[in-house]
Design a binder for these strands. Structure first.
Lengths: 233, 233
DNA sequence: GCAGTAAGTTATCGTCGTTAAGTTACCGGC
DNA sequence: GCCGGTAACTTAACGACGATAACTTACTGC
């Protein structure tokens, strides 16, 4: 919040001997702030970040290997925020499906609120296959844990939660990514759309499990017809 | 296919008087080729494209306003291919749901096969809100038309196909984007996963329409329990 | 107070997108 | 047949970028 933005800030006092870590945190904060107001990620340069902090650009490289590493650190920081937001959103909810919906909704809303950060984290090419990082992230863990609960409650079927989690995650990611990248499309009420997508995704998977193992269109059509007939009675 | 890749190609003969358009097409083709083999879009420089064609970099600007315009032209070109691929995939299919599935599957497969092109088109920030371009694109039109057919067949409910199309499109986009950006995740058999996601999305929306207007978790849980009970009999 | 080193800076490299100014070769008109 | 006009390029160069190497400063332990 103390971001001096464009022009060069006050010349900083050299940091204390042991506390190089402090500047590292300041750099991350400045980069995060600049990214939040940037249309695209490459619009924020190493030089601009250094300027905002009040140091020269090569100093960045004392704390980060390169630009990717800096942005990765920012993303890690943002994802901790996301983790908290999701936990808050699902706080007090006990029904597994309610929790799943709360998690998903919080996830998408957070992504929309941190569009440029989310873009770097989830839309830009991954420099290094950091499987562990993704799968160990709070968001993924929360989703997966809740899917396990849903399986326990009989909502989903199967012994492996992972494919289900991936499927639901892709639904959340899809609506988030599309709304971020194509905000001008006729989304109607965004919250309503998000909710529909998420509830539909969960219901789709649950109903799919109900009908059979990955039922095909013909089966779906028949099943839907039967449902409508049953309802008409 | 005649791409000279890295080193400067044969010096081209100057084009005929009236035919500046020919070079334009060659530039697009070269950029498309280079993008196809690039890990990231900025790895393809204006200079590299010029080099591949056998001209100097400023010559590009005689045919395109800037780099964005060039890449936009490439994307437009690729999307025509996508259009054809989708039409081919659904050729001969009459059942609306079968067609929807074929369109969706072709869409995602094409995206995975043209990852870097798809990234530029659908993942990178939109320079200009080109609503019309997107909504008028073949892919969107095909989806929307088939949704109309599905409504006619009673599979979906409602008088406006647009929200349904957007919802289904976001599902296709979600799985495509995630598989492109995080290919190292445990996707299992990709084709199977794609099919599950697409069928689930369609079924989710259909079942959702069946139960009520955007039914909430409590309703869903109750409905699912009733279904399981009915099936057990 | 002095060596050692953490924490920065200055200077510089090569690449990029892009622009300005110059050059070459075709083509219609006389 | 040659000549002005201009389409189609090239050469040269600018400013910004990410990154590296070499230098300087100032704190700390002994």
């Amino acid at each position: 919040m103390s971001a001096p933005a464009t022009t060069s800030a006050h010349r900083r006092r050299r940091a204390q001997r042991g506390s190089g870590e402090q500047l590292r945190a300041e750099i991350i904060a400045a980069a995060k702030e600049l990214l939040a107001h940037a249309a695209r990620a490459d619009d924020v340069s190493i030089r601009a970040v250094a300027d905002a902090v009040g140091i020269t650009s090569p100093s960045i490289y004392l704390h980060f290997e390169d630009k990717n590493a800096l942005f990765a650190a920012v993303v890690a920081d943002v994802f901790e925020e996301l983790d908290k937001a999701m936990l808050t959103a699902a706080d007090g909810l006990t029904d597994p499906l309610e929790r799943l919906r709360a998690f998903g909704f919080a996830y998408v809303k957070f992504a929309l609120g941190h569009a440029e950060h989310y873009r770097i984290a989830a839309l830009d090419p991954c420099p290094i296959p950091e499987v562990d990082r993704v799968v160990a992230s709070g968001a993924f863990v929360h989703f997966n844990q809740t899917v396990v609960e849903c399986i326990g409650a009989g909502i989903f079927r199967g012994d492996d939660p992972l494919p289900i989690t991936l499927q639901l995650w892709s639904a959340a990611h899809g609506i988030a990514a599309l709304m971020i990248t194509k905000p001008f499309l006729p989304w109607g009420d965004p919250d309503d759309m998000i909710d529909r997508v998420l509830c539909s995704a969960a219901l789709g998977r649950a109903a799919s499990d109900l009908i059979g193992d990955n039922p095909q269109p013909a089966q779906l059509t028949a099943w839907l017809a039967a449902q409508r007939a049953a309802k008409a009675d």
